[in-house]
Amino acid sequence: MSRTDFYEDPNAPKANSLKVAVSALVRNSHGQILMIHRTDNGKCSIPGGGMEVGETPAQAVVREVREETGIDVTVTGLVGIFSNPEHVIAYDDGEVRQEFSICFTADPVGGALQTSSESKSVGWIEPEDLVNLAIHPSIWLRIERGLEGHAEPYYT
């Protein structure tokens, strides 16, 4: 399903749903960041997706990272809770979702890089090379907050 992100756009459609999503800033032992190139919007992103009934947020992020990247992770911390009413995502089925994502830090513990139906490429990226990628501002905020290493989680 394709999607269109509207960010601080006065002409954006009004949100008609809200779903809990999770994401993870995963760094390997070299300090590189696990990134995907999304199939639904063509942007580069940290892995993540929607939480399912019966999961905790931590279980959801472990599942999403594995599904999108092939990498097994363990959750190590909380970057923050990101929900901006000025960021809505319109899907081609008519859903217009307000952003709401719980972002974790995580360490890789196994698996091997692989793509999925949600990721056309997957890789470990040096933090200084992120500026060369097309990354949505809401994902940039999560990455920046995660790299800054604040003791307290971010929230809006």
Rank of each mutant, 00 (worst) to 15 (best):
S2L: 15
E52P: 02
A21T: 10
V75Q: 05
S119R: 01
A58T: 13
T69G: 00
P13Y: 11
D92L: 05
C103T: 13
I102M: 10
E95R: 14
Q98S: 15
H150Y: 13
D129Y: 04
D107C: 02
A151S: 15
P57T: 07
D129M: 01
V79Q: 03
L133K: 07
H136N: 14
V73M: 01
M51W: 09
G42H: 08
M51S: 07
I36L: 05
H136C: 11
F82W: 07
F82M: 02
G111D: 07
S2D: 15
S2E: 15
V53S: 12
S121K: 04
A24C: 00
S2V: 15
S121E: 14
A112P: 08
I36F: 04
T76E: 08
E148C: 06
V26K: 00
D9G: 08
T39G: 07
S17P: 05
A106C: 07
G42A: 08
Q32N: 13
E99Q: 14
I89M: 15
R63V: 09
H30D: 10
S116I: 02
G77T: 00
D107M: 03
V75C: 01
P10V: 12
T156I: 03
V96I: 15
D93V: 12
R145A: 13
G123C: 02
R38P: 02
P137E: 11
G94D: 09
G49K: 03
D107Y: 01
G49Y: 03
Q59L: 04
N28I: 00
L25I: 11
G54K: 06
M1Y: 12
N41C: 14
G149S: 10
L130F: 06
V109I: 13
G111E: 02
S138E: 05
T39N: 05
E67P: 02
P10D: 09
G110W: 08
L133E: 09
G149P: 11
D72Q: 11
M51E: 02
D107V: 12
I71E: 00
E144I: 09
A21E: 11
